[in-house]
Simulated assay, not measured.
Amino acid sequence: MTIQYLINTPISTNQFIDILCRSTLGERRPIDDHECMEGMVNNSNLLVTAWDGDKLVGVARSMTDFHYACYLSDLAVDRDYQRQGIGKQLQILTRQQLGKHCKLILIAAPAANAYYQQLGYAAIPRCWVLDAGQALEPS
Rank of each mutant, 00 (worst) to 15 (best):
I124A: 10
E27K: 14
V77D: 04
D131V: 08
Y68D: 00
N45F: 01
Q91Y: 06
A111C: 08
Q117P: 06
A112G: 08
I92Q: 11
P125V: 12
A76I: 00
E35T: 14
P125G: 13
D80C: 14
G99H: 06
I105E: 02
S44W: 00
L25F: 03
G99R: 03
C102I: 00
R22P: 01
L72V: 09
H34F: 08
S73N: 09
A108P: 06
I107F: 09
A114P: 08
D131N: 15
S73G: 15
T64R: 02
W128L: 05
W128T: 12
K103Q: 10
V129T: 12
R29E: 07
A109V: 05
A60D: 10
M63V: 06
T24D: 10
A109M: 11
D131A: 11
I105H: 03
V41I: 09
G58V: 01
D33H: 05
R22D: 04
E35F: 13
D33K: 07
G87E: 08
K100L: 15
E27Y: 05
Y121W: 15
C70G: 03
S62H: 00
R22Y: 03
R126S: 14
G39T: 12
A112C: 05
L104Q: 04
I86W: 00
H67W: 13
G120E: 06
A69W: 09
G85S: 13
V59H: 00
R126K: 13
Y121N: 07
A112E: 12
L46N: 13
C36V: 14
A114I: 11
A76H: 04
M37I: 02
G53D: 09
V48P: 02
H34R: 15
G39D: 07
R95A: 13
T64H: 06
D32H: 07
K55D: 14
A76L: 01
I124L: 05
H67R: 13
E27P: 11
W128A: 10
R83A: 15
M40S: 07
K103F: 12
L46G: 03
Q118Y: 13
G26K: 03
C36Q: 10
G133Y: 06
K55C: 15
Q84L: 15
D78A: 12
T94V: 15
L90M: 10
Y115H: 14
L72T: 03
A122D: 13
D131R: 12
D54H: 14
F66K: 04
Q117D: 13
R22L: 02
L98K: 00
L98I: 00
S23A: 13
N45S: 12
L72Q: 11
L119K: 09
A69L: 14
G26I: 10
V57D: 00
Q89R: 11
